[in-house]
Nucleic acid binder design. Structure first.
Lengths: 128, 128
DNA sequence: CATTGACTTAGAGCGCGCTCAAACCTTTAC
DNA sequence: GTAAAGGTTTGAGCGCGCTCTAAGTCAATG
């Protein structure tokens, strides 16, 4: 019923290793998390949501030092709302640019692949 | 009139350092290139085109070992046409997947940014 | 004829983002 | 009571993709 997770459960859910989760906590990306009586980390749903958002940033190419900046602003409370928004807006522009660039490259790839198809046709006619 | 380039001209044109160009040649990505009487590298237009295509692959996230595989296939001649095409087709699918993933993330970012705008509105009403 | 500047090589060093090793502690199962 | 399964810490190591250093060659310039 309660949604608390061990580190290995979280690892499975986020699809990364427990090592990496501890590493992210060490460098200040994930907040220090609750501990059970045995000293083991206990993750609540809010931790999962925060982690998932960070991983979304990572997946879109944000470098760790910038995620770290965002995490620090968040820890500083509501006075940093505008700054956090601006950071995300800048990142939004970066992601847009990535998409444009990839779309262009997709066209280049398609052209190249077409050329290969043509070359392969010619190859097949070599010996009469 | 003739379009031959020194390494520093090529570096400017490709927007990378001469160091990096030599590095790419060393690891087998760029073909060993012509040399002037003084032993300096001399780049012809075909070298530029090949480099630009490789950089396109790099820009779309292809790791160096795979670019290297492609480069080796190319050096092996026409018998590798199909294999090269398949490599590019696989990469095309990867790029498509990247675009989809980024587009999704863009929506998530937009939601988050909207939420920040709302929170900032509320913040501004705090003191009456 | 010495200096400047652009090139050459081999190889060392570096920043990023993990990834793993070692030593140790708990809880559960037999 | 002991072994296995899972967690803890600190700190070292690693793969990638460059990036830079050192020492040297060569060509043109003052």
């Amino acid at each position: 019923m309660n949604p608390e997770l061990t580190i290995s459960k979280l690892a499975k859910r986020l699809d990364l290793s427990a090592h990496t989760i501890r590493y992210y906590e060490r460098i200040g990306l994930f907040d220090p998390v609750g501990r059970g009586g045995n000293g083991h980390r206990v993750y609540a749903e809010k931790d999962v949501l925060w982690a998932e958002f960070l991983l979304r940033l990572k997946a879109t190419g944000m470098p760790i030092h910038q995620m770290l900046r965002y995490a620090e602003l968040r820890r500083s409370g509501d006075s940093t709302l505008a700054e956090r928004r601006e950071l995300l807006e800048q990142h939004r522009r970066d992601v847009q640019a990535q998409i444009s660039q990839l779309s262009q490259s997709l066209e280049v790839l398609d052209n190249k692949i077409q050329i290969y198809h043509q070359l392969e046709q010619k190859e097949h006619h070599h010996d009469p």
